[in-house]
């Protein structure tokens, strides 16, 4: 019993030690980002390279884009790195973010069962493909979580002229889950879903799923990064956060992003220097 007491005391002491608040010397920042950048494995590849150059530890909290922007808004992150341009611009316009920097893009793809019950395989026009899915009532799984991918999906329905709120039937299932969970569900129930290509390539439980529609300009998926405004959030580590952003858009950082490949495929395409992204 004495021994147990000592163990408990030791654990308690350890908890207190680990409970030291982050000190000034601790060079680390919190980045609120999306599940796609994490699930695709990009951060695991990129962050050690950045740390080597700068000595800064980046702590990534992977959420949906909407939640990530919220985290920034609550001053709980130093940098927000997401993919929903309209929401990002609003974030900056609000004064919550300092400035938006485009970093890279990849594209969305529609994946679905190899048997292709909706018959959309190889379609060049994503809008037509979505209308077909709807008309045939083929099962479609939506993230439904205010993420960047969810926003993109809603925008695509809109472009297709489908009022998804009104037209959705039992074939359309809104999950309120991350990308991986949504892919798991689609794989298990032979349905279609919209995913970013990076997550798709790195996803290990594809089962009978395959890419059905890709390559349409409308499927373009731009990532942007913003420093949370220190004027609104005094706790923001301005210099460290900006150093991370500077790295991402620097030639070095852009080269590193381009260098992330799985099975010879690039997952993200740097485009910080392109105007209008």
């Amino acid at each position: 019993m004495i021994a147990l007491r000592n163990v408990t005391a030791a654990i308690f002491a350890l908890a207190l030690v680990t409970a030291q608040p982050a000190t000034a010397q601790d060079k680390s920042i919190v980045v609120a980002s999306t599940t796609s950048t994490q699930d695709s494995g990009l951060f695991e590849y990129l962050l050690p390279k950045f740390k080597e150059k700068s000595g800064i530890t980046v702590k990534v909290v992977a959420q949906g884009t909407g939640q990530a922007l919220d985290t920034g808004k609550r001053c709980d992150a130093d940098v927000v790195f997401v993919h929903a341009r309209a929401q990002e611009e609003k974030f900056v316009a609000d004064g919550t973010g300092v400035k938006r920097f485009p970093v890279m893009y990849n594209d969305f793809v529609i994946v679905g069962p190899k048997s292709d019950p909706a018959g959309i395989k190889g379609a060049k026009d994503v809008a037509k493909a979505l209308i077909t899915v709807k008309d045939k009532g083929a099962p479609f799984f939506s993230r439904g979580d205010r993420s960047g991918t969810h926003s993109a999906e809603l925008a695509l329905w809109k472009t297709s002229g489908v009022d998804i709120e009104k037209d959705k039937g039992t074939w359309y299932k809104s999950l309120g889950q991350g990308m991986g969970a949504t892919l798991n569900t689609a794989a298990a129930s032979n349905g279609y879903t919209l995913t970013d290509r990076a997550t798709w390539i790195n996803f290990k439980n594809k089962q009978d799923l395959a890419i059905a529609v890709e390559g349409d300009r409308k499927l373009f998926n731009q990532y942007g990064v913003m420093l949370v405004n220190p004027a609104k959030c005094p706790s923001v580590k301005k210099d460290l956060g900006q150093a991370f952003i500077d790295y991402l858009v620097s030639p070095h950082g852009q080269q590193d992003i381009a260098g992330y490949r799985i099975d010879g495929q690039s997952l993200f395409f740097p485009n910080a220097t392109d105007a209008g992204t």
Binding site: D39, G180, N202, K204, K206
Partner: peptide
């Protein structure tokens, strides 16, 4: 939870 979402069951 993360590995599940990555599909690495």
């Amino acid at each position: 939870a993360l590995e599940t979402s990555k599909g690495d069951l």
